[in-house]
């Protein structure tokens, strides 16, 4: 519960500060010879004076994408992920979107590896930024420029088949080795309605998104993700887990209406 409150606060701060300040960012950055996003005040607020270690978060995403409606991004940090020394929080931003927040991820040492993959929406060509905070209070960063084109051979039908909304898919390894991280893939069918679209009658379609994803092994949290509206339809999340013993993995997706879907999977550790 605490983690949710924390995320909401950060999110509000970002919403307040970030949008209005983006315009001046490029000029200032050019003057300072620093990355543009470091001058964004909301990120500065988050950093609270700390200087993040650059290129310490590996961001893997295409330099050019033909389809901004679903861009695969992986963020990963080298970390021992021990109780004393692990990555606690990871923040993803798309600086050129109508609202820059993408997702906030809270890891525990049980994740075994500070790595997450998801699919995001990119409104136009822009910079994607990742910031991470370690348990020791260090800040790390990474950023990538992405060019978004609309391919002439890729006219997507803007239809979403809604009959299977909230259906989930999960893939866990058949066996884990004790203490070793293996990846878990998840997907939930959901339109992730942004609130920015209008219906045929010109009325705004209200925002309706999956906003919270949680993974627990028995009673121990593994990972918590707060999703924003720029996560692509059918939210896709790949994360890691390094269990010491067998147990039951519980995954839950919570919609902003409060509706929640829960799935469990047996975890076997050799």
């Amino acid at each position: 519960m605490q983690s949710i409150i924390h995320f909401s606060r950060v999110s509000r701060l970002l919403a307040t500060f970030l949008v209005g300040l983006l315009h001046s960012v490029h000029t200032v950055a050019a003057q300072q010879g620093r990355p543009a996003w470091e001058r964004v005040e909301a990120i500065q607020t988050l950093l609270n004076g700390a200087v993040p270690r650059p290129e310490a978060v590996r961001l893997d995403l295409p330099s050019v994408t033909q389809d901004g409606s679903s861009v695969l991004v992986t963020a990963e940090i080298d970390s021992p992920m021990t109780p004393d020394n692990h990555v606690e929080e990871l923040y993803l931003f798309a600086l050129g979107n109508p609202s820059p927040e993408l997702a906030e991820i809270r890891f525990t040492p049980l994740a075994g590896r500070a790595s997450v993959s998801t699919r995001i929406r990119l409104d136009r060509s822009q910079t994607v930024v990742a910031l991470a905070r370690t348990s020791g209070g260090d800040w790390l960063s990474g950023s990538r420029d992405v060019r978004v084109t609309v391919s002439g051979c890729l006219s997507r039908d803007a239809t979403y088949q809604a009959d299977d909304v909230m259906q989930t898919r999960v893939r866990v390894p058949p066996r884990f080795k004790a203490g070793q991280a293996s990846d878990i893939r998840t997907l939930i069918n959901h339109p992730m309605e942004t609130g920015l679209r209008k219906d045929a009658a010109g009325q705004p379609i209200p925002e309706q998104i999956i906003e919270l994803f949680q993974a627990r092994l028995d009673d121990a949290p593994v990972l918590t993700v707060r999703l924003h509206r720029a996560i692509a339809a059918n939210p896709y999340l790949v994360f890691h887990m390094a269990p010491e013993q067998s147990g039951e993995l519980t995954l839950s997706w919570e919609e902003d209406t409060g509706e929640t879907t829960v799935t469990t999977a047996e975890i076997r550790v050799d």
């Binding site: 389809d67 679903s70 391919s151 051979c153 890729l154 006219s155 997507r156 039908d157 339809a233 059918n234």
Partner: peptide, 9 residues
């Protein structure tokens, strides 16, 4: 591997 393709409709 995609959720849509060219001239899909």
């Amino acid at each position: 591997a995609k959720d849509g393709f060219s001239k899909q409709g």
